[in-house]
Design a binder for these strands. Structure first.
Lengths: 122, 122, 122, 122
DNA sequence: GTGGTCTAGACCACA
DNA sequence: GTGGTCTAGACCACG
């Protein structure tokens, strides 16, 4: 077990991203139970405090809800979970466009550039 | 003067990004002198030590070179400066593609999605 | 505690050298924890910021790695640490030969001269 | 015209070393006149202030003497100039031995190591 | 507890 | 004038 983390981003945030991605991809369904803090800590090779903070953050974002004495569950508000996916897409794309503009790339070239990279990747 | 900074990233790094962007966009040319540490500090509304750190970091990245007693200058290695621009583009695009894949967006939809956002922006 | 420093070289660099030497000599082993910034500052009779800078520099050189909230550790890449020792030796010897040549000492006399000094030292 | 200088050492000191080396090697003889501050500044591609400081330092070290209205001359105290060469040798060798000890190289291995490097150089 | 960032203000060497 | 170093003391995020 145990994973490797980047130095640049807080570990708890990297785990937040990981779990969020799994939910958005449908690998974790609304209402599904997450591992307990301790189990998750063992699996990720991380201090339980770190997972605690991860779950707090996920709860703050309404992605997850804790039920006293039962554990932590993916929010079963399906509509909200679907919106989550759309919002993430939205943010990623807008941020991409903004960063490219910041380094002086004209919007009109963006599509062509992206196609070039996708072509190479095949 | 004085600007506003995000809480998430160190101020000195945000200024590093700002200056790097200006260079990549050609707003600052190879060999051009930057403001002195003290002047830049005033303009950015920040402590001189913070700018000092910014300039150190830029020098470490070979984006800038300092000449003792004279000041700090954009590296006049034009080839290297151009490569810098290409690398930044490269990183931004690859990171974009990766993030989209992480949330489960198929590569083949990327161009279509991007076009949609660019269309809206007009 | 407290040590004395030369005026010619920055204090933080002298401490970098000191720690590097200890590692190369095997006094500090790969993976071993260094004193915390604050402890080291007290021991060296120096401001914590100065040690902070020392540790940053050591990390930049891949001699040390910091784990958030845990401390600073000698890089546990044993191969790299051994290479470090070899490189330092290499630099010192080459620099010695070069300096002697610059003052006009023929290479063929170097060994004899060195032996003379080593003999005196006993 | 114009030379390249390292960033690590003050330019005026690098020129001090250069001139001292030339004297020790006998390329400049006792009593010989040096270029004027301005001429030297042009030749080295450097600010005259920098050469001024170089000459001051050389005078402080009794390597050079300025005669009012005539210029700057290599000290014609031949005995002293010869001692200079020996002292420099002395310092370089002792510093070499010390640095090698600092990284834990046993004195008894020094000669062997040096021979190895000299052998490679041929 | 850990390291990291920032400010304020000082001093220095260098060109 | 320039950049570079250092101190003192503060605050913060992280584990």
């Amino acid at each position: 077990m145990g994973e490797e983390f980047q130095a640049s981003k807080p570990i708890y945030m990297q785990i937040v991203d990981k779990i969020t991605n799994e939910i958005v991809q449908g690998k974790k369904l609304p209402g599904e139970k997450l591992l307990s803090v301790r189990e998750m800590a063992v699996q990720m090779g991380v201090n339980p405090n770190t997972i605690q903070r991860t779950y707090s953050e996920l709860e703050r974002l309404n992605i997850v809800e804790t039920r006293r004495g039962q554990g932590t569950f993916v929010s079963d508000n399906t509509a909200l979970m679907e919106e989550l996916g759309r919002n993430m897409q939205d943010e990623i794309i807008k941020s991409f466009i903004q960063k490219m503009e910041e380094i002086g790339v004209d919007k009109r070239h963006l599509v062509r550039l992206l196609q070039k990279y996708l072509g190479e990747g095949e």
